[in-house]
Design a protein around this nucleic acid. Structure first.
Lengths: 209, 209
DNA sequence: TATGATCTCCATCATTTGATGGAAACAAAC
DNA sequence: GTTTGTTTCCATCAAATGATGGAGATCATA
């Protein structure tokens, strides 16, 4: 039997999917406690009881949102892995940073929600069990930091987390950071990519540009 | 005339200061909307009206908390700058990472709140005006990424932000990340420092360890 | 001890917010 | 066109939450 989330992902024009889409953005901006069901409903243009009809209680909708964005992120990582496969490491990193940054700039709520997941506690809610390790292992293998995806060393996992978090930070912090560097959106994106490459690539390749 | 915050910082045993201290931790864990005045009051062991008597409305207390942790962070950065002054760059970075990581592990709410500040929007509240640029310029000069603190190039600012965010991420994400690497707190701290140095130092010094 | 200032708590309010029941609107099947 | 199942909205509730007034407690000082 399909879960509500699976239904929504299969039928992108359904009300369920519309609600999910808006919920991603609102939860992404304001976090779980900062978001009210009324805010989401208003965004969709429906009554809150319609929202509850489709998704049940707020916590369930939030959980679906988290699983949803994690699935999107996973899919993108697999796609990128396919593209960079076989190239030399510096190129792989260069391309992966470009592609992931572009993707996340198009879907900033993903970065927002990932960071909320890491840093913010949610009152009274059990932690949602998303298998980040899966991502991490995949990236680690793709960067040839380990042989197999089983038993990735802790040190390597932290390195991968550092990479992902660097990217997420610049996406989620755009509002704040862009003021500081006084750049237009496009210039900011370009500079972020440069900065990420400047910092991340030398450590793993031994070469500065 | 002294602001409430200045009073609290000068009299660490006052009720104002006690409330501020607990408020830091609670706001740091749950964010602005995830925190209720009752939670803070209970933590201090007082009635909420006592809290309101000392700090006024919730938003004002939160703003004081933000300014407070930014001041702590600024002081620490100045202290570290004094210690590393005059040494060669790789040593400066090595020591600075050690000192800042230790400091933030002792005060994780600082990292939490800094990240909330960057990534989370607060419903209906105007953005608090804290001069991050000041930090950033100081660090940039200390790393010799620029001559003076005036007119620090955007590229350099982003580099400094990347450094600071990497550290904050590992502190704030401890709960989440530590599970993934299955380490005790002390081992986690040690591995985080290694990872930060591994990633950050080569970019700025051209040398891998 | 009397006086005034400061501080703390109890009781309470108004609003917001999560959540639901039931009536109406709509759609599909026969 | 009636019946049946689905979807949507209106009205409403109970609990949580931000906020305050005022009575009492505490404390310094004359």
């Amino acid at each position: 039997m399909a879960t509500p989330l699976e239904k929504a992902r299969k039928a992108p024009n359904s009300m369920k999917a519309k609600i999910l889409k808006k919920a991603r953005r609102v939860f992404g901006e304001y976090g779980f406690h900062g978001t009210t069901t009324r805010m989401i409903a208003q965004e969709v243009g429906i009554d809150i009881s319609t929202l509850y009809y489709h998704w049940g209680e707020k916590g369930d909708l939030y959980e679906s949102v988290i699983v949803d964005i994690n699935e999107d992120l996973r899919q993108k990582l697999v796609e990128v892995e396919g593209i960079i496969h076989g190239r030399p490491l510096p190129d792989r990193m260069d391309i992966a940073i470009d592609l992931m940054t572009d993707f996340l700039f198009r879907h900033p709520e993903i970065s927002n929600l990932v960071l909320f997941q890491y840093f913010g506690k949610t009152r009274g809610k059990k932690l949602i069990n998303v298998e980040i390790p899966e991502f991490v292992s995949g990236i680690a293998r793709s960067m040839e930091l380990c042989r197999s995806t089983d038993d990735v060393p802790g040190r390597v996992r932290l390195q991968v987390l550092a990479i992902m978090n660097s990217i997420h930070s610049f996406i989620s912090g755009e509002h704040f950071f862009r003021k500081m560097v006084e750049l237009e959106k496009n210039d900011y994106m370009a500079e972020v990519k440069k900065t990420l490459k400047f910092i991340l690539i030398p450590a793993f390749t031994g070469k500065n540009k």
